[in-house]
Each structure stands twice: as structure tokens, then as C-alpha cells.
Amino acid sequence: MNTFRILVVDDEIDFQETIVNRLKKRNLHAIGVASGEDAIQALEDELYDVVLLDIKMPGGMDGIETLREIKRIQPLVEVLLLTGHASVETSIEGMKQGAFDYLIKPVKFDDLLNKMAQAFQKKAAHDSKIRDAKIQELIRYPSRVFGQEEEDGKDF
């Protein structure tokens, strides 16, 4: 199935790899990179639907600059900011630069998936011509898109 493409950007390799693995396990196409530069390289090579971007400490302009660059390369990609620190200024700055939303680590995987689903929805709305059919499917049967994930985390 032609699935969503997710880019995970985090220099905390343990975290990044695990997230990628867990997304892959849910039949999502996920790629992990450890730096802003790598992320930009990846975006130049391929199209993505959602970028999960870790921003650092308050005033972490690396994150914000990467975001700006991402939006320049692929304006339609939805960026979810992830941070260990909820600095309103940084988050507002991120939202101004076009980020979809932000989440504070550690985040429940379900919440992350829900946020992503919303981001996909938005992305899909933008790409309505190409992805119209997929949106319909997504709205009606989100569980089909994300496979087996349930609240108690058990497989079926």
C-alpha cells in the first residue's frame, strides 16, 4: 500500500531509532536522521508527508532554522515539533514558521500517532487532488491506516 512517509529528526539516537522502528511496525514509512543537515539532505532527495523534528533547549535556533529550511524545500510537508522543554517562545516561533503543532517529551505513543493523524489530514487536504481517495479512507477508517494499535497496546 502506498503509505505515509515520515522523517524523524533527533540526535538522541536511541529515541530516534525506536520511534522509527515502532512506526515501521505500524506499516508507516519512516526514516530517521540525527541532524538538521541530514534532514535537509533527506528532504531534498525524497518527498515526505510529516517531519517529526526535535528542537533543543530554549532559543534552540538549530531546530527553528532547520524548520525554516524544511518549509523552504518542501512547503507542503507538515512538521511536528518535539521537545524536552516547553518553551512557549520557541513553540510560538515554531508555529509562526509553519509547524503543525508541538509535543513535549516523553510523549505517549498513542498521542503521537493521533497528532500525526491530524497532521496527515491537513497534509492530505492540501494534496487533495492527489490524495483524495486516501483522505476518505483515513477519515472513515483511521484504524486501517495505522493498523493494529489500540489503547492497551495489544496486537490483534
Binding site: E12, D14, F15, T18, G84, H85, I104, K105, P106, F109
Partner: peptide, 13 residues
């Protein structure tokens, strides 16, 4: 938060 996130995700994984 960062190590907590890793622990959480590892457990989830």
C-alpha cells in the same frame, strides 16, 4: 525528559 522519552519508547518497542 529526554532519557525518559527513550525509556518510554524502548518499553513501547
Amino acid at each position: 525528559n529526554n532519557p525518559l522519552a527513550v525509556i518510554g519508547e524502548k518499553a513501547g518497542w
